[in-house]
Design a protein around this nucleic acid. Structure first.
Lengths: 322, 322
DNA sequence: GCAAGTATTGGCAGCGCTGCCAATCCTTGG
DNA sequence: CCAAGGATTGGCAGCGCTGCCAATACTTGC
């Protein structure tokens, strides 16, 4: 920057002020500085800028995965709001490992971000400590079943499970099964299952069958799981899937095997993915406002409201598979 | 850090050395410093660290979108390699706007990243200038049809289009249509279409019909486009889609309307998405090594090989829809 | 027991910028 | 024409760390 100042024949502070369009400067000075900067191909150094001033324009965002479109959707919503406000996102992917999350929090914090967004409420004790002590706004996303550190934006996964169960029960299904994926790591999916079981219990029912794969969720896994489950429990009349990826797999299995949906077997998912909504029979599922949660989280991160919980609820999509 | 040094009763440089596990230090000193750091809840400041030293551990990654799983896949591959090497990704999303890309490049460059990864070869003149002058490794991903700035990792989209056309021709289809999405912005999709048309021409054929939606690609758009196209051109016997999202939509339309695939109508996509491969009839498509491209790009970014083009080719999936 | 290493340590400049404050210039009103 | 007040400008410390170098402590071989 001092090169630019010299080239423009002005002081460093003046150059700095012009380049940041902050404070006052005469039009001629501005022109001189901008011209010099352009001539020299000057690219500011935000490291130095941020170090010298107070706040950075970096926002850390931590998600468990990028393989499931849910999280890119979240990033998309957040990125749009942050980008428009001149902020940049630094992404960390935990792979659903709490320890990995802890490292990422440390690592991202060392960049002195203006705020941190993280998916979920479950963290290691040290992660919570780091976040609480960071002195920046923390937003936890996608879940409201538990204690937040600062700001929380999402919905109740337990309630999502309950709503799904009540829907199936109301439709008359009684031999209801569950098909899920790695629940030890995906805590939100586990909460949905809990809520689902609780609502079944309230109706005097229990799970007719269950198949939980060890891998992460995928269409293929859902398809295979349903095949397995029906082989063992042919009397099942409805299946609740841990998410739409799995449910679409189940739906494909039914199409392939000529299993009538929903007369012979009902299917219910979670997320309201684009592909699920445009299937020949739109999948019955819960639409989650993922992009909106990302956007709202970003907005709250940049605002300075008091800590609190913002609920952006899911919406029941009746579909044609239940 | 000076607080930590004081608390530990050592000099700043010693503390710095211990905290970076670099250079030599006695076990006792190390213990003292680490203890002090833990007691004080010390979080290093990489801004200062990077400013004082030479290189940062930030890598800028610029993609056009997060709505299509292709790009999260790319990020996933890159992130895994980068994360393992202690690097962090700063993401920018251009929304397919070259000007937006230019701003992002500037903005990311101001963080003095150790390298920059960007999807595609098409940039504004100024973007190319900025990238070429940045003095860091630049990797352009997903396309090899054109001039790269430094390192290029991907495949030929034009060739992908050609291969797809030849496949359909070899299968005996002659009244072939194209269904695509916003080609002005998605240059790679446009190149595939070009290659496709070129191969048709080589066989003495031309497009029997075409429907290009203005929006970005989606299952719903593909479904509607096929409906429209068949209404106007019922004789079409095969459709090449701009990608699997669109093709899946087309497939769903066929299922819903009872159109026999591939006997009455063949469908061909691009990308080899999970959902497409597990459909009742696996979609005929080209599988692109997106995660591998991300990973390879990251690896080359961190290595210091000479500039060049690395081709990671797509693979023809015969599927059951052609 | 001593010189010649080798391991360990601390001091300090400086990375490139911004914030503060003082200096200078230009208006305006009387 | 002059003083007061605002606009514009420049100098310089310092953000928190690392790299360099000199100083000190400990080994080893003979």
């Amino acid at each position: 920057m001092s090169d630019v100042a010299r080239e423009a024949g002005v002081g460093e502070s003046t150059a700095s002020r012009v380049l940041r369009r902050q404070g006052s400067s005469s039009p001629e000075t501005r022109e001189k500085v901008l011209g010099a900067a352009a001539r020299l191909g000057y690219v500011p150094n935000r490291l130095a800028g941020t170090l010298a001033s107070t706040g950075s324009n970096l926002i850390g965002i931590i998600v468990p995965s990028l393989a499931n479109i849910v999280f890119p959707d979240l990033l998309r919503g957040a990125g749009a709001v942050l980008g428009a406000a001149g902020f940049r996102s630094v992404i960390g992917v935990t792979d659903y490992e709490p320890d990995s999350e802890e490292h990422l929090v440390e690592s991202l914090l060392s960049w002195r971000p203006a705020g941190l967004m993280v998916a979920g409420l479950e963290h290691t004790a040290r992660t919570r400590l780091l976040l609480a002590a960071a002195g920046i706004r923390i937003v936890e996303m996608l879940d409201t079943d538990g204690e937040g550190i600062d700001t929380v934006v999402g919905f109740s996964n337990r309630e999502a499970g309950r709503v799904s169960a009540r829907h199936l029960i109301a439709r008359g299904y009684r031999r209801i099964a569950y098909i899920g994926h790695d629940l030890g790591r995906d805590r939100r999916a586990a909460k949905r299952r809990e809520g689902f079981l609780a609502a079944l219990a309230e109706a005097g029912l229990s799970l007719a069958a269950e198949d939980v794969v060890r891998t992460h969720s995928s269409v293929g896994a859902g398809r295979e799981a349903l095949d397995r489950l029906l082989a063992r429990h042919p009397a099942v009349d409805a299946v609740y899937f841990s998410n739409d990826d799995m449910a679409i797999g189940g739906y494909f299995h039914c199409l392939a095997r000529g299993i009538a949906v929903p007369t012979r077997l009902a299917l219910f998912g979670f997320n309201g993915l684009d592909v699920a909504r445009h299937a020949p029979q739109p999948l019955s599922t819960l639409l989650t406002p993922r992009v909106a949660i990302g956007a709202t989280s970003a907005r709250l991160l940049l605002a300075d409201d008091p800590p609190g919980v913002t609920t952006l609820d899911f919406e029941l999509i009746e579909g044609a598979t239940s």
